[in-house]
Amino acid sequence: MTSHLFCSDTMQIPAALQKGFPVIRPVPISELSATVKSIVWLHLNSRQTIAQQLAPVKQHAPQSLIVVMSDIPNDLEALAAFSMLAKAYCNTHAGLEVLLNIASVVEQGGIWIGESIMQKLLGGSSVEEPQLDRALGKWSKLLTGRELEVAKAIAIGLSNKEIALKMHITERTVKAHVGAVLDKLQLKNRLQLALLVKEG
């Protein structure tokens, strides 16, 4: 049976999580075990990046299945979490049914993506299959060097501001590059682009 651990430096275990998994216990990241396979419910804090928070969990407990919990969920944060190999991303105050569903999917080796993110990934996309095949097969050749750099930065969850700082360009230029990339690859949004980049 998979054990459930809760890592947070700011709060008690959420009531719904405690109800769904009565034996869940709070554990400092430094005390996670490398030998025990468990679901680690990681409550994000706003003082560090997702990478800074997930890296030590992966270091101390490489076999753990990480569920990222955010007080104010957003698509870019979700993207960053999945790029760091989190198995799920959800609202800290998600209901019992959602939490049980997440645990079930993750325990079976799946990745749980929330409905709102899934809607943005799939909803309203009018990409035709031949166009998508072309993009999947040769997408990187369709982009300029700068556009490819922006696409890769999006895939690791960087915001426009962070990309601008990294590439020493303005946010306006980043937006122009993002628009051009989405247009050339005939994709609807950053999440689709990130998945495309990650699939190679």
Rank of each mutant, 00 (worst) to 15 (best):
S46V: 02
V106Y: 13
Q108W: 01
I102H: 02
Q48W: 05
K58V: 10
I29D: 05
L100R: 11
A81P: 13
K58E: 11
T92I: 02
P56C: 08
G95N: 15
S64A: 14
I111F: 08
I72N: 01
W41D: 04
H93Y: 11
N101L: 02
H43E: 10
I111P: 01
L85F: 13
M69T: 05
K87Y: 11
I72C: 00
K87N: 11
V106D: 08
H60V: 06
M69K: 05
Q48H: 08
Q53W: 15
F82P: 01
N101E: 03
M69C: 10
P56E: 08
A80G: 03
A78I: 09
L32A: 01
Q52H: 08
Q52L: 08
N91S: 06
G114K: 15
L44W: 09
L99Y: 04
A94L: 12
D71N: 00
V98N: 04
Q53N: 11
V98L: 11
C90V: 13
Q53P: 13
Q63W: 04
I113H: 06
E77F: 12
N91L: 11
C90A: 14
A55L: 12
Q59P: 01
M69E: 04
H93E: 04
L42M: 14
P28C: 00
I50T: 13
L76P: 02
A61V: 03
E31A: 01
W41S: 07
G109R: 03
L76V: 14
A80T: 05
I113R: 13
T92S: 07
I113A: 06
L44Q: 08
A78S: 14
A34L: 06
M84N: 14
L54E: 07
V98K: 08
G110F: 10
D71E: 00
I111W: 06
P56M: 09
K37T: 00
L65E: 07
V40G: 03
L96R: 11
C90L: 15
G109D: 01
A103K: 13
A55P: 01
I29W: 09
